[in-house]
Amino acid sequence: MITGSAPWRGTAWAVGKLGLSGRTLVIAIPMLWLLVFFLAPFFVLGRISLAEAIIARPPYTPMFERGPDGSLEIIASLENYRFLLTDALYRNAYLSSIRIAAVSTIFALLIGYPMAYFIARAPEPRRSLLLLLVILPFWTSFLLRVYAWMGFLRTNGVINNMLMGMGVIDQPLVMMQTDFAVYIGIVYTYLPFMILPLYANLTKLDGALLEAASDLGASPVVTFFTVTLPLSLPGIVAGSMLVFIPAIGEYVIPALLGGPDTLMIGRVLWDEFFGSRDWPVASAVAIVMLVLVVAPIMWLQSVQNRRGAD
């Protein structure tokens, strides 16, 4: 016992000597994680976005250069950002990404809410099974599932063959390489991220409140809109954020299912990086996208904090 606890006491002593409480240590781990995997890459990106593209390896100008008199010169320019602001392509791509992400989020909410509600209301043993079914697709590679959709949506694909076989249509519908296919892909892929937070929220809903509403003469529909829906708002916000944020930067789904008209910022980023070989502009595009995604989250956070304070 004594020997076992000795090292721990020693550590605690050292921590206390350094002025570190257990609390700071616990916070330090995720902070360190963010520093290494988020802030450091962010600064690398920021540094490249201030450079200029050249034919070299790596293909951008160095940040520090020795001047003719041996002094250290810093080369940085905001030219790439100016370029992003003046070229309509980027604005259109950002707007179109936000639109596609927003529409997908709304559809994911419309489909996911009833599913989460149903699961939350199901009797206990069946509930775990239903939840398992929601998570089950994650056991297969995401890429394979998108390819499976290609098999469904193709001109000679499952859906067209079925509809033609039943005589509903006589010309195959062109579904691949359209925005429709992109919406299907995004809603399908991110639906579990909508269902899980909604489910977590809806199971905690106090049944007594619903009984009270019904005792006071509210119909089930009125009860839903005046009690259930407002109380599940945090779940709706959490689920929508989990769908909206990755959908904005989505690259794989529009690249595989989308058509040439599908303009999304992930694709523009790819073009700048691979097509033009312009890493600085690509970095600037990525940084602007990050700001665009972070800004609404910060705003939402502050709104929720204010609410909590009220």
Partner: peptide
């Protein structure tokens, strides 16, 4: 050259996206 490369990539992005 770099300038022509930029012109052609820009045209291509515009063509592909129909912008």
């Amino acid at each position: 050259d770099n300038r022509t490369e930029r012109i052609s990539t820009r045209l291509w992005t515009r063509l592909r996206t129909g912008q």
